[in-house]
Structures are given as C-alpha cells and as structure tokens.
C-alpha cells in the first residue's frame, strides 16, 4: 500500500429541499425573523453601470416550471471587478457593490427575477478576456448538488469568450444567452433536462 494521502473529503451535498426559504428567505416562507434578509440588493444604489433586470423560469424535464427553486447570483461590477479580496483590483470595486444575490421564484408561476447592473468583461485564464457574464448557482427539491451555469447577454460580442468556446456543440451556446426583451430587460430561461437543456458547469 502506498502512503495514505491525508486530505479531508469534501462534505457531501444534499438537496436544499422544498423548504429552503425557511433558512435562506424566511419572508417567502411566511414569517419575519431577521432584521435583514441577505441577497436582495446585488449592486447597491451607487454603483455605476447599466441597470438591468433579468427574469426567467426554470423548467424540469417535462417542461413544467420549477416553482420551489432558489438561485444565487455572483458577478463583477461594470468595470469587471469582483468585491472579493482575491480579485487583484478589488479595492477599486464600485461603492456599495456586493455582486451577490439570492433569488427565489413566485410559488404560483415559477417566475424569478433580479435587478442588478450589467457586469463588465472579466480577465480570465491566461489573460483572455471573458465576455460579460453572471454566475448562477441553482438549488431546489430534487437537485442533489447545486447546479452551476452562467448568464451571458445576446447584445454583447460573445465570439471570443473562452468559456463559451469550450462548448463542443455550438448550438448549445445559445442556452447561456439572456435575450434582450426591452431596454435594460433580459429573459433567461433554464431547462434542467431534455430539449434545449441548459449547459451546466463543473466549476
């Protein structure tokens, strides 16, 4: 036997279940408990940039809307800077900008939406510039481990994005594009399974 490696194992994931709101958005579960719930204000009022709203529905493999999903959003500011110390430019991040949001659906329709600013391009690996994008993490009843994906914008030049370029079937890149429906408004539907299945990422 070789020497054992002494790394710990990552704690296994489990589904967030149908009552995820109790812990992460108790107001939606039907009660007020915290002075302030987290994740409702991604960009803050001061950050420069184009104010946008993104809306969508998550569909399951039968096409039905998933009404108990929770999404979390992570993005850079309009200059492509993350509000995090590991971003080399973080000290210049826009004032009041946090870049993180928590989004839940309407229990009746499954529609979700969030307000933010359009992120700027971010420097990717080997200095290659990534097109403006928002990272998403999706949990729900029936999802055993959170699903990662990215939102890109159909009114940006995405042709040189190194992540989209990794998608072998070019048609599938479309599943990551939010479609502009009005000035400052975008639609981003997610299909968990089947026709038009959204590209999910192992990050």
């Amino acid at each position: 036997m070789p020497q054992p490696l002494d790394y710990l194992k990552e704690t296994p994931s489990q589904t967030a279940g149908p009552y995820v709101h109790i812990g992460l958005a108790p107001g939606a579960a039907g009660f007020d408990i915290y002075r302030r719930e987290l994740g409702w204000d991604i960009a803050g009022p001061e950050a420069p940039g184009e104010r946008i709203r993104i809306e969508g529905v998550v569909h399951d493999g039968t096409g039905a809307p998933v009404k108990d999903v929770m999404l979390e959003v992570w993005q850079a500011d309009a200059a492509g800077i993350h509000a995090h110390p590991d971003d080399p430019r973080h000290e210049a991040v826009a004032p009041g900008f946090r870049g993180w949001g928590r989004v839940i659906t309407d229990f009746d329709t499954g529609l979700w939406g969030f307000d933010s600013i359009k992120p700027g391009p971010v420097v990717g690996r080997d200095g290659r510039i990534m097109a403006p994008h928002i990272s998403l993490w999706i949990v729900a009843r029936g999802i055993n481990i959170g699903l990662n994906t990215r939102i890109y914008f159909d009114d940006e030049d995405n042709s040189a994005d190194p992540v989209l370029a990794l998608i072998e079937q070019a048609d599938r890149r479309q599943t990551l594009l939010a479609r502009k429906t009005a000035p400052g408004r975008y639609r981003f539907d997610i299909r968990l399974q089947g026709d038009g299945e959204t590209v999910f990422l192992d990050i």
Binding site: A76, A83, R98, A140, N144, Q193, V199, F200, I203
Partner: peptide, 30 residues
C-alpha cells in the same frame, strides 16, 4: 438518484462542462 423521485425530472441528462477556475470562480460573496 431515481429512488428520490423528484430528481428524475430535475437532473441534467447531458454531462457538465468542466471549467478551470477563473476569477469568476475563485471569488465569492463576503
């Protein structure tokens, strides 16, 4: 995980796309 029934229609059928970390992944909310 078919014995957990809700996972049947809520699991992607296609493989995940593996990404090496960029700044978008190694940062996160504080």
């Amino acid at each position: 995980a078919p014995d957990y029934k809700t996972s049947v229609a809520r699991s992607p059928g296609l493989p995940l796309l593996s990404l090496r970390n960029s700044l978008s992944e190694i940062t996160g909310p504080v």
